[in-house]
Simulated scan of single mutants.
Amino acid sequence: MTRLGYQIPNFTYPGVEPERLFPAITRQAVDAETHGFDTIFVMDHFYQLPILGTPDQEMVECYTLLSALAQHTSRARLSALVTGNTYRNPTLLAKTVTALDVVSEGRAQLGIGAGWFELEHDALGFEFGTFTDRFQKLEEALVIILGMLRGERPSLDGKWYRVHDAINSPAPLGRIPVMIGGGGERKTLRLVAQYADESNLICAPNEIARKLDALAGHCETLGRDRSEITVTLQTSACIAPTHDQATHEFEAYLARNPAAEVRRASTIVGDPDEVAARYTDLLATGIDGVTVNAPANCHIDDRVALLGQTLAPLIT
């Protein structure tokens, strides 16, 4: 299960040309695995998100990338954070995640969510629909995908998907954990309680207690043991050997990506002691771990390693 996950959310790095992009990504994954991160994530998007850059910035298709990273890593789990359910038929997604499990020798994880980035859907021809539509699709998809991943041959004549005796061969090498991302208290956390092994919350720290209470309530209603579910919080950090270096690197990032200014207050910036103190406070809220991205300075040598060295000792 994920206790300390490293997410790679951006692929536009100063001075890194397209032909050197994959080595720059691979270095991050290797450093993350070497220095204590148990799961490596990439985003499942085709356009860069508004809070990270512009739509025309580089985005690499996630499952192709994860399968390639599997050949350069050996221990860390590999996952999207999170797969947009709207982008793939659930039977295709089950086969794709299973293929990742096979090529990674049993290290695949399914992170999944309802999908939300309307611009991307409209531009690329994916049906977006209403909020209710997307959550209905997600639940039907989970029924199909989990059946296929767990050795069943599911059939479903649903509102959105129709499958009959869906075969998944070869089967996964082990039990593929399922993480549902988001913090919606009525819909998302109910789906977590019913279907998932892990929850990745997206919320402010002062909302964590309420989210955990909501999840516990859904578990009680469904007869699920809350302790079976691992809960992590999505975070952003910019770490460097000194406070001044970290601040300089974060400000340089904002200068390159003005849209990221909205992340100023939520990004944890500082030297190892400062970053460790902030994450210690977060872990005291009752969550089991964190997922971390570092878009400001992940391209700088040793920053991902330093982040792992700082955070791994906090996870017990």
Rank of each mutant, 00 (worst) to 15 (best):
R256A: 09
L283R: 01
R186W: 08
E118N: 09
D281G: 15
G289S: 03
Y195S: 01
F250S: 08
A255N: 12
L212T: 10
E139R: 01
T232S: 05
L222I: 12
G113V: 05
V192Y: 07
C203D: 02
G184N: 08
I176H: 01
V102N: 00
N89G: 10
K211L: 10
K137R: 15
V97I: 15
G111K: 01
P50S: 06
A99E: 05
N293Q: 11
T316M: 01
G184A: 02
L283P: 05
T221K: 14
E251N: 09
S169K: 05
L191W: 05
I40G: 05
L100V: 06
E140L: 01
F117K: 02
A68W: 13
T64Y: 12
T132A: 11
Q136D: 14
E249I: 13
F117H: 08
E251A: 13
V231Q: 03
A80N: 01
P313N: 06
P272Y: 11
F22T: 11
A204R: 14
I229C: 05
F37V: 00
I287G: 00
W116Q: 10
Q136N: 13
N85P: 08
D213Q: 15
T188C: 14
T285V: 10
A70N: 08
Q71G: 13
D225M: 04
G115H: 11
G217E: 12
R256M: 07
V97E: 10
E127G: 14
A237C: 05
E249M: 14
G174C: 03
S199P: 07
L189H: 06
N206F: 09
D56H: 08
C298G: 14
T132Y: 12
E249K: 11
P170L: 07
L222A: 15
C219W: 04
A246N: 06
H121V: 10
E152N: 11
K95H: 02
L314M: 04
Q28A: 03
H121N: 13
W116E: 07
G217K: 02
G151I: 14
V143W: 07
L212G: 10
A32G: 14
R303P: 06
C238A: 13
A240D: 03
T230R: 03
T130M: 13
G5S: 14
A166D: 12
A32I: 13
A193D: 01
S236F: 03
R264M: 02
G147N: 03
S155A: 07
N89M: 08
V82H: 01
L311M: 07
Q57D: 08
I315F: 00
R256V: 02
P205I: 00
T26Y: 10
R263S: 07
A296P: 03
A94C: 07
A284L: 06
I167M: 12
